[in-house]
Nucleic acid binder design. Structure first.
Length: 498
DNA sequence: ATGTCC
């Protein structure tokens, strides 16, 4: 039985702090009481380990927190000096994106229409581990040289042109491209060339390039939504300014850097672990998953280079998926238009001004949340609104588009990245009834590409989304500007008898 | 998350 939550100092309706050692900066905990009580002892222990790790200045635990790799999924870890690969995670730059179409909601009311759209999308955008050899026209096939440019340049003008992605979409990315620590793509190219010297490695890298424009497995998904803009006049004005259209169809995507980012992340974990062992260095709290490097060291710079390439791949992957989804909608509804609302990550480390100095902000299952007027938004089209925050809940209960409030400074300008698991995959598969899950989705008028919906991804495997939203709003981190109501969902399908 | 163990 966990008692850590009883040691918290409650500071507001959805905020608390947890003092660790003689720390001047306690762990910030975001969540209503019932959310805080839902965090298990191991989640709190991982937060404590992270807070006490070398060079760490702040840790925030978000309402979707649960046990992760080294640090909890659903946390923010801040350091002025150190980078931590574990808290970035194996899916480098796992992200959300939202495409707004001008198609009225009524147009996809018929299930037969939705089935057509699912088929058109699935034809272009494969799903699941190892997938990616989709049937593509030659113009969009990703060979070694285009893959190389994707990894080193990200969403550059040339890459977007080659892949038939509207160039304006680059302005709707949290980061359209990532460079090496020296600020150039040249060192990324040198790094990638070095990696590709080994023939087997090169083959492996090039096979991952071909996954560009595909969803992964697990919690990755694509979902058609009806946008329901908030009734509140201020929220409605912001929703319109960022391009949302009430009662029109939008498409929400969740995926990351696929096998390409996975290999880069695993390579870095291995390299850093063996470097620690060679030097006889102790892992923080004895946990190899909390291996780290000083950002300004050879190891740190190598990690940041590899992370940048994984991040570039994830960025172009999302943008290509959105272009392919729009193309699929046009199969069924010729001439419709679509614009990217935003593309934003929840597994990344970024340099940001925090507490008066530039620091490395690790968001592990956490979303950046910069309010209007934040220095990093000056000169962007979101300067006066805050950038969109894309918060997936679950298909049954909806997802949310929010913008940050000035209060987000409390959480190192971050909010959660979703609802967060309340049940392990094993427990969900054991406890949740397949027929109930499938009927539940049908009762909520949601069509899926899966014969049977994956039980470990069922809405009830995740925390109560209303409670999670109450936490964000109660802590005054962000305000909702629109709710997304799912109409159909594409996921990596589970076999009927698993 | 991941050709779910190089």
């Amino acid at each position: 039985m966990d008692t850590t939550h009883q040691m918290l100092d409650v500071t507001g309706p959805a905020t608390a702090t947890l003092s660790v050692g003689d720390s001047m900066s306690p762990i910030t905990v975001i969540g209503t009481e019932s959310i805080r009580e839902s965090f298990g002892p191991q989640t709190y222990q991982q937060a404590i380990n992270s807070r006490l790790a070398p060079g760490v200045s702040r840790v925030v635990l978000n309402p979707d927190a649960h046990v992760g790799y080294g640090a909890p999924v659903g946390c923010v870890m801040v350091s002025p000096t150190h980078v931590y690969p574990g808290p970035v995670g194996v899916d480098i730059k796992c992200s959300m994106s939202l495409l707004q179409t001008d198609l009225p909601a009524d147009a996809i009311e018929e299930h037969t229409v939705r089935r057509k759209l699912i088929k058109a999308i699935a034809k272009r955008v494969p799903t699941g581990a190892g997938r990616g050899q989709r049937h593509v026209p030659k113009a969009r096939s990703v060979d070694g040289s285009l893959g190389f440019r994707v990894a080193t340049e990200g969403a550059s003008k040339m890459v977007l042109k080659k892949l038939g992605i509207p160039k304006a979409w680059a302005d709707r990315c949290e980061d359209a491209y990532h460079t090496a620590a020296d600020g150039t793509s040249d060192s990324l190219a040198a790094r990638l060339e070095w990696m590709g010297r080994d023939r087997d490695k090169l083959n492996r890298i090039e096979s991952k390039y071909r996954q560009l424009g595909s969803y992964g497995g697990g919690n990755h998904f694509g979902e058609a939504e009806v946008v329901q803009v908030s009734q509140d006049p201020h929220a409605r004005q912001i929703a319109e300014q960022i391009g949302l259209r009430h009662n029109h169809v939008a498409f929400l995507s969740h995926c990351g850097s696929r096998g390409f980012g996975h290999d880069l992340a695993m390579g870095q974990f291995r390299a850093l672990k063996s470097s620690f062992q060679k030097q006889g260095l102790a892992f923080p709290a004895g946990d190899p998953q909390l291996v780290y490097a000083e950002a300004d060291s050879p190891e740190g710079r190598l990690y940041l280079s590899d992370m940048a390439m994984g991040a570039n791949f994830a960025t172009v992957n999302h943008l290509l998926i959105n272009a392919l989804v729009l193309e699929s909608f046009r199969d069924v509804f010729p001439g419709i238009r679509g614009e990217l609302i935003y593309f934003i990550s929840h597994n990344i480390v970024r340099r940001e001004p925090i507490d008066g100095q530039t620091q490395w902000v690790h968001r592990k299952g956490a979303t950046r949340a910069l309010p209007a007027g934040h220095s990093q938004l000056v000169g962007t089209e979101f300067e006066h609104t805050g950038h969109p925050i894309l918060l997936p809940g679950n298909p049954r209960d909806g997802s949310s588009v929010m913008v940050a409030r000035p209060g987000a400074a409390l959480s190192a300008f971050s909010v959660n990245h979703g609802a967060g698991r309340q049940m392990s995959r094993t427990k969900a598969k054991k406890n949740l009834s397949q027929t109930t899950i499938d009927q539940d989705l049908l009762d909520h008028d949601i069509v899926s590409n899966c014969r049977v919906y994956p039980r470990d991804e069922a809405p009830d495997a995740y925390k109560d989304f209303r409670e999670v939203l109450d936490s964000v709003v109660g802590a005054d981190l962000a305000m909702e500007v629109a709710r997304l109501k799912a109409k159909f969902v594409l996921k990596d399908g589970a076999p009927a008898d698993d």
